[in-house]
Amino acid sequence: MDHPRELTVEAPRAWDRPIVSVPVLVCLSLVGGQLPSFSAQANLYTLGTGGALIWIGLSNRVPRRAAPRRLPRGAVWWLLPVTVFGVFEGVTFVLAVGDEFPTFSRLADPLLEDHLVRSAAWFGWLSAFWGLARR
C-alpha cells in the first residue's frame, strides 16, 4: 500500500547518528590540529574536508531539518553582535597597524599554534559545517 510522501518519515541512517558522526568529526579534528599553518597539507586538508561537506550539503544526501519560512522580528537582535564585531574587524583591518591594534585573526593566531586549541577549533568548524549541511 502506498503512503502519501508527506506522511512518511525516513529512518535515520546509521552514519547520520551522533554516535557515529561525533567520533568521525573528533578524528578529523585531531588530524587537522596536527597540521602546521601555511603548510600544503593544511591547505589540502581544509579544502578536502570543506569540499566534501559542501558536496554532501548540496547533493541532498542527508535528511535536512525544516527551515522557517519567515523570521520573527526578534531576528534584528542578531545585528547587534554582528555590527560590533564588524566595526572592530573593519577598523583594525583598515588601520593595519599590526599588534598595536590587531584584527581578530591576528589575535587568534598565537592561540591556534597550540595543537589542542587548534584541534578544538577544527572540531568547532567541522561540527558547524556538518550542522549547516543538514539544514
Binding site: 587537522g32 597540521l35 599553518s37 601555511f38 593544511a42 591547505n43 586538508y45 581544509t46 579544502l47 574536508t49 570543506g50 569540499g51 561537506l53 559542501i54 550539503g57 548540496l58 585573526s105 587568534a108 591556534l112 587548534r118 577549533a121 577544527w122 568548524w125 558547524a128 559545517f129 549547516l132 549541511a133
Partner: peptide, 18 residues
C-alpha cells in the same frame, strides 16, 4: 546555501590553514 557554505569554507581555510 552556496553563499553560506562558501563563507564557512573560507573561514576555516583562513583560520586553520593559514
Amino acid at each position: 546555501r552556496i553563499g553560506l557554505f562558501g563563507f564557512w569554507w573560507w573561514l576555516g581555510w583562513h583560520f586553520l590553514a593559514r
